[in-house]
Design a protein around this nucleic acid. Structure first.
Length: 421
RNA sequence: GCGACUGUGGUGAAGUUGGUCAACACACUGGAUUGUGGCUCCAGCAUUUCGUGGGUUCGAGUCCCAUCAGUCGCCCCA
């Protein structure tokens, strides 16, 4: 019987964890600079946290890992925003915290999709939520935060696409207009779009199947239905991005898959040809009603999420490397009948803050030296039976290839001397 | 959920129109006087086994079916 990870899941192996840890450090550092604080919410929540009324997204409707325990239905989180807003309301942050609240999260998410490169069933997301205040400059700053992470990961081939969905009244007016426009052309649209026409006509605009359909090209533009306030808001977002030197493209087809967005929405994509079908690295937008939905006051929020597998893939494609992995600085070898003396020596060195590996299995001197080589140690300590009898060990400086006998009580200072060279 | 391609040891892989021993390389383990390694040399290294399970055949890693997994595209999305 052999086992393997379930479909769409994978192990991050020891040789890869250094890259992950470094990436996570970079992200936390950027969050610190922008003064965001981490929040950790449960991996699963009541299903109703994710499955909200009128939600038409595929993610909630057919990709969730939902399970029942007794009479309760739970769901493995497919995204981070819902849980964060739930926590924001549950702990009444709106009353106890200065607004906007600036929160970030990082951890596994689960979606039952067909796996592909850059698309796993368990994947890792980092995301930020800026909650409590609606201001165009906040939208720009949030996008800047994400771009800053990309920059530190040495990623440059990206494109920022941005659009606005407008406020409620703009959106409602546009929705009606779209429905009126598409209804007579219904037969020209793909089956999925028939459903979208009723549930979320905006999504017809970024339908891939109908991308070249002339009916889509003649569709009314959202820009014509934006009221003055929404238009001004969007202009100020763009102005702020200009001021920050962030290049962007306005894409009026960009409507996003999650239903809760209002005003600003954006997607940052890789422009590398090898990034595959899953080119979106991070994406998000503003949401005006989520805080209210979970029982808080009417408050607006702005956030985005980064897929960390995609981020890491992209960074590696662009040549990014985390700093060299730490290797043992000292390797202790036993020679002759020395019992646990090598172990005792290694422990003492570790106590002095020196990273030490020690041979604990019976094998030939030659094999021990081989193992020492592989460990990449700078110093080899040879604990020989006859030297130990005099309270000494041999210390070999691998770089200089010199070996000297050192008294046990002088060992750590001698090694520090060699390592500091 | 749909379509296409792929699946041989720890790794990279060779395996011809189905025919005795599954090549080769790297890695790994041991040895060439357990007291000094990194080179070299020698030996071992896929327990009827070629993702798994069936089938065709005198005979299958090579053909057929199913199943699992991966990759690519669609869809979805980070």
């Amino acid at each position: 019987m052999s086992y393997q990870t379930p479909r769409g899941t994978y192990d991050i192996l020891p040789e890869e964890t250094a890259d992950w840890q470094r990436m996570e450090e970079i992200i936390r550092e950027v969050c610190r600079l922008y003064r965001y604080s981490e929040i950790r919410t449960p991996i699963f929540e009541d299903t109703s946290v994710f499955k909200r009324e009128n939600d038409s997204s595929d993610m909630v409707n057919k990709e969730m890992y939902t399970f029942a325990m007794g009479h309760d239905s739970y769901t493995l989180r497919p995204e981070g925003t819902a849980g964060v807003i739930r926590a924001f309301d549950q702990h009444k942050f709106y009353g106890s915290m200065e607004m906007p609240a600036k929160l970030y999260y990082m951890g596994p998410m689960f979606r039952h999709e067909r796996p592909q490169k850059g698309r796993q069933r368990q994947f890792t997301q980092f995301g930020v939520e800026n909650i409590g205040v609606s201001s165009p400059e906040i939208d720009a700053e949030t996008i800047a935060l994400g771009c800053s992470i990309l920059r530190r990961m040495e990623i440059s081939s990206i494109r920022v696409c941005i659009n606005t969905l407008g406020d409620d009244s703009s959106r409602a007016a546009y929705r009606t207009a779209l429905k009126e426009y598409f209804t007579p052309h219904i037969d020209c649209l793909c089956p999925d779009c028939h459903r979208r026409l009723e549930q979320n006509p905006l999504r017809i605009l970024d339908c891939k199947a109908d991308a070249d359909n002339p009916v889509l090209k003649g569709a009314p533009s959202l820009a014509d239905y934006l009221n003055e306030e929404s238009r001004t808001y969007f202009e100020r977002v763009l102005k702020a991005l200009d001021d920050l030197g962030i290049a962007y493209e306005i894409d009026d087809r960009l409507v996003r898959g999650l239903d809760y967005y209002t005003h600003t929405v954006f997607e940052v994509k890789s422009t590398r040809p090898d990034s595959g079908a899953q080119a979106t690295v991070f994406a998000g937008g503003r949401y005006d009603h989520l805080v209210e939905y979970f029982g808080g006051p009417q408050m607006s929020g702005m956030g985005f999420a980064i897929g960390l597998e995609r981020l890491l893939n992209l960074a590696k494609d662009e040549g990014w490397k985390s700093q060299s992995a730490s290797c043992a600085r000292v390797y202790v070898i036993g020679l002759g009948n020395v019992g646990s003396a090598p172990l005792r020596i290694a422990e003492e060195l570790r106590g002095c803050g020196i990273s030490a590996e020690v041979n604990l299995i019976p094998r030939s001197l030659k094999a021990q030296f081989k193992s020492a080589d592989r460990s990449g140690a700078d110093v080899i300590v040879i604990a020989g039976e006859s030297e130990l009898a005099e309270g000494k060990v041999n210390v070999k400086d691998r770089k200089a290839n010199e070996q000297t006998a050192v008294r046990l009580e002088d060992l750590s200072s001698r090694i520090k001397e060699i390592l500091s060279k």
